[in-house]
Simulated scan of single mutants.
Amino acid sequence: MSNQTRVINIVTNDRPISKETSRILKQKLEKNGFLIADTFDPKAELIICIGGDGSFLRTLHEYKFPDIPIVGVNTGHLGFFQELSPYQLDEFIFRYEKGDYIIQELHPVEALICTRNSCIEIMGINEITIKGAKSRTIHLNISLDDSFLEKFSGDGVLVSTPTGSTAYNYSLGGSIVDPRLDLLQITPIAPINTVAYRSFTSSLIVPRESMIKIHPEYTFENSIVVVTDGMEHKHNEIVEINLKMSEIKIKLLRLKNYDFWNKVKEKFL
């Protein structure tokens, strides 16, 4: 394939530093013979997302989890997904052309939300959270595959991927999970554990084949909010939510010296 036909998508947020980084990156890539798509091209060979972790997640959701490798340039705060800093653009282009990178495959978590009338499917890269609307306490019957697990009482539960283990899950006291592991984590949000109510107070780690089934008590059908990667979904008369690991793969481009635990140390300690 000649360089003239090598198309790259650049997606950026509205911050001035992001727009300036995008302008510089476009110039550098074009100088190296790449073509930058004017509008998102689903046949491009790479997506470069400029912004923070929020921009990265929004890009994947907006373009329906495309089957194209994606790499992030961090102009935000934490930058856990973002592989590059703006000063690394030349190094990145040099290494990308040499093939000096790896592709890290991530599986989202998917949920089928069934109301009395229909079922809606949603996906989360980090997590899907089920909680009470207007900060109400809710009661949820939780099963794992065909085994009843618990009647949960509290603010809600979060189901996270290994990738999402360092996000909201970590704030709730959940475990940090190496992304090379294929599993889901169920983490309680403010569980109530009293004589009247018994809820798990630690996160539960379950294998990737697991189906997590959540049935709200019928009086709570209209007071449930489902949040995926920070985006709220409100449906009335929710009778069941089934969660599992998706078969879809997100292809995250990492430079060859990427080390998850170094990144954890750098960002959290």
Rank of each mutant, 00 (worst) to 15 (best):
M1I: 09
S2N: 15
S2P: 10
Q4N: 12
T5P: 05
V7N: 04
V7L: 01
V11W: 01
T12V: 02
D14I: 14
S18V: 07
S18R: 12
K19H: 06
E20V: 11
S22T: 12
R23T: 15
I24R: 13
L25G: 09
Q27G: 13
K28Y: 05
L29W: 03
K31E: 10
N32Q: 15
F34M: 04
D38M: 11
L46E: 01
I48W: 00
G51N: 02
D53P: 03
L57K: 02
E62R: 15
Y63L: 07
I68E: 00
I70H: 00
I70Q: 00
G79F: 04
F81I: 14
Y87K: 15
L89S: 04
F92C: 00
I93R: 08
R95C: 06
G99D: 07
Q104H: 11
L106P: 00
H107W: 02
P108H: 15
V109R: 04
A111S: 11
L112V: 14
N117W: 09
S118I: 10
C119K: 08
C119E: 05
I120M: 04
I122H: 02
M123A: 09
N126D: 01
E127D: 15
I128M: 05
T129K: 07
K131A: 07
K131T: 12
K131V: 07
G132F: 04
R136T: 03
R136F: 02
R136Q: 11
H139I: 10
H139N: 14
L140R: 10
D145E: 11
S153T: 15
G154L: 00
D155F: 03
V157T: 02
G164Q: 10
S165E: 04
Y168C: 04
N169H: 07
S171R: 05
L172D: 14
L172S: 13
L172W: 07
G173L: 02
G174N: 05
G174S: 11
S175H: 06
V177C: 02
P179I: 12
R180T: 15
L184A: 06
I186G: 01
R198F: 10
S199L: 08
S202V: 11
S203T: 13
V206D: 03
P207W: 05
K213P: 02
K213L: 13
H215W: 14
Y218F: 14
T219E: 14
F220W: 09
S223E: 13
V227T: 12
T228A: 15
M231H: 15
E237M: 14
N242C: 14
E247C: 10
K249W: 00
I250G: 00
I250S: 01
R254W: 09
L255V: 07
K256D: 11
D259I: 12
F260G: 09
V264G: 02
K265P: 00
K267T: 11
